[in-house]
Deep mutational scan, measured.
Amino acid sequence: PAHPYDRLKTTSTDPVSDIDVTRREAYLSSEEFKEKFGMTKEAFYKLPKWKQNKFKMAVQLF
Rank of each mutant, 00 (worst) to 15 (best):
P1E: 13
A2W: 15
A2Y: 15
A2E: 15
A2M: 15
A2T: 15
H3M: 08
H3R: 05
H3G: 03
H3P: 07
P4Q: 06
P4L: 08
P4A: 10
P4D: 08
D6H: 01
D6C: 12
D6M: 00
R7F: 07
L8A: 05
L8D: 05
K9I: 12
K9Y: 06
T10V: 13
T11Y: 06
T11C: 15
S12D: 08
S12G: 04
S12L: 03
S12T: 08
S12F: 06
S12H: 04
T13V: 11
T13E: 13
T13D: 11
D14N: 13
P15L: 08
V16D: 02
V16F: 07
V16H: 05
S17A: 14
S17K: 14
S17P: 15
S17F: 14
S17D: 12
D18A: 08
D18R: 05
D18S: 09
D18C: 14
D18M: 07
I19D: 02
I19Y: 04
D20A: 07
T22M: 07
R23T: 08
R23W: 06
R23S: 10
R23M: 12
R24S: 06
A26S: 15
A26Y: 12
A26G: 06
A26L: 09
L28G: 01
L28K: 03
L28D: 02
S29D: 10
S29A: 05
S29T: 13
S29M: 02
S30L: 11
S30C: 13
S30W: 11
S30P: 14
E31V: 10
E31R: 09
E31L: 08
E32T: 04
E32C: 11
F33C: 06
F33N: 00
K34V: 13
K34M: 15
K34Q: 15
K34T: 12
E35V: 09
K36R: 12
K36E: 01
F37C: 07
F37D: 00
F37M: 06
F37L: 09
F37Y: 04
G38R: 10
M39G: 00
M39I: 06
M39F: 04
T40V: 07
K41C: 08
K41Y: 09
K41L: 09
E42Q: 12
E42C: 12
A43T: 13
F44Y: 02
Y45S: 06
Y45F: 09
Y45D: 02
Y45T: 05
K46C: 14
K46S: 13
K46G: 12
L47C: 02
L47E: 01
P48N: 02
P48M: 00
P48C: 03
P48F: 11
P48D: 04
K49W: 10
K49P: 07
W50I: 02
W50Y: 09
K51V: 14
K51S: 06
K51Q: 13
K51T: 12
Q52F: 00
N53P: 01
N53C: 13
N53A: 12
K54Y: 13
K54N: 10
K54Q: 14
F55L: 15
F55W: 14
K56C: 12
K56W: 11
K56A: 03
M57L: 12
M57A: 08
M57H: 09
V59A: 09
V59M: 14
L61W: 13
L61K: 04
F62K: 13
F62V: 14
